[in-house]
Design a protein around this nucleic acid. Sequence first.
DNA 1: CGCAGGGTTGAGGAACATCAAGACCAGTGG
DNA 2: CCACTGGTCTTGATGTTCCTCAACCCTGCG
Lengths: 273, 273
Amino acid sequence: MLLTEKAAKARSLLSAKLVQAGILDPAGADVLDAALARDVRTIEGGMPIFDQGERPEAIEVIVSGWAIRERVPLAGGRQIVGILCGGDVCDFNVFMMRSADSGCRVVGEARVARIGRDALNHLNRHHPAVGQALWWESMTATAIQREWSANLAMRRAEPRIAALLCMLLARMCLTGAIRKMAMPWPFTQSDLANACGLTPEHCNRSLAALRKRGLVEIRDGQVTIADAPSLASYAAFDPAALHCDPALLPFSAPAERDAGITPVMLTDLAKTG
Amino acid sequence: MLLTEKAAKARSLLSAKLVQAGILDPAGADVLDAALARDVRTIEGGMPIFDQGERPEAIEVIVSGWAIRERVPLAGGRQIVGILCGGDVCDFNVFMMRSADSGCRVVGEARVARIGRDALNHLNRHHPAVGQALWWESMTATAIQREWSANLAMRRAEPRIAALLCMLLARMCLTGAIRKMAMPWPFTQSDLANACGLTPEHCNRSLAALRKRGLVEIRDGQVTIADAPSLASYAAFDPAALHCDPALLPFSAPAERDAGITPVMLTDLAKTG
DNA sequence: CGCAGGGTTGAGGAACATCAAGACCAGTGG
DNA sequence: CCACTGGTCTTGATGTTCCTCAACCCTGCG
């Protein structure tokens, strides 16, 4: 029900997402999957997929598992600027032979497929639809990054964390990687805090508060969201950046449609008017 | 001195930037400029270039002036997620016939060039180098967006504002639009506050503090930066996201190179370790 | 057993938001 | 000319959010 028929075949998460979005037809998806299957390696947690400043010779795609995108600031430390899940493309800089402005690092464990530049050129020439689809994916990634920025700028700690989780849940739903309202969660609270621009302590307290509200439960390497519509409503989360049919996402409240009940908690949580 | 010879010709800011970056050769720049010159309109302050949700039929390029990129959150109001200056491309979604996840709105006054889809296709077919260059521009925009996110997540109010100004100054330098350390500044303090995720009042106080430090002065529609290296050092600003020769930017301190003086104020301003 | 890494909790202070009010200025209509 | 507006900038007082520092617990592991 969260996944339409045409994307239900056994496909890579990336091509499933692109088919789902109506960008790629099944034939193109098969071509992409063949290219993705050629060179897959397993990378353990903490290992970089590529480092900031590297000049990638291939495009890297997360087949399964998780990774973070991070920048190393001049002042030291690191800053997480994105989270990558199965079906995400790590970097599009290959196409320009450009060095990476940020690095990608596996969290937990991940399988990563690599498509070399030659294969990419071949793909672009003989299957332009696949190249187009990667364009689309690139622009979706940019839109998600803008959403990430907006989240940091306009929400306070609790709804900020909630919105980040909503976005991840939504992205996972689009690939069809999950069917119930639970995600694997290999990240530490420090990772989440860094991503949200919070201290680990405050992130911990905010998570406790979210748990007390009955919205989010993180335990045993899984985040479970009992009531996704409530969480989305609490965070005032808008999946528009994903450019997908809202019906594919688990955020539309059935009660809202059936009985005309208006969602609560939408206001008074914004950081600025 | 801030602009190399080959980019010094009378060109659009966009092509000047691309030539400067070594992505486009003069011949390609001429082709791009011809396309840009065909349909230029002047848009007054407050008017949208396109709205969130629109399905653009053309690519819009800022010829001169300023604009903001904004999202309308479900909770109401608006959230600025980017600032566009001369030489920036507003949206790449045309290529995919995709609706815009965020709107663009002119601030002050701007001249905006439009390249329709047909002209773009023609350009891509007959001058692939220009298409490549637009790819590059798209990826630079994404890198800048990641920097924007990192800025919001890791810096506190004062260095956050400082870093935002550094980034804008750097981008303007790359187009050759400015030669002294001053920028036109059509934005209100409320705009800046919104962009930085601050309240207008706190932004005002932080700006006063930056002025007291002798780093930034905003007056009469201009922001003047007396000592760009000091500002960059104070904000721990790293122009790496721009992928350009640091020598093109005004941030390298001469004193640092000549006398080996180490920059101060780099530490103790980070938000999180 | 000791140890390290993550999670949790508490106390105190700094950073930031909120509310309120006033100054200044351009425009505008009397 | 004036008063009157609306917008922006500015300043002050007060409260909340969040950071900082400092523990402590728990678990897995050598």
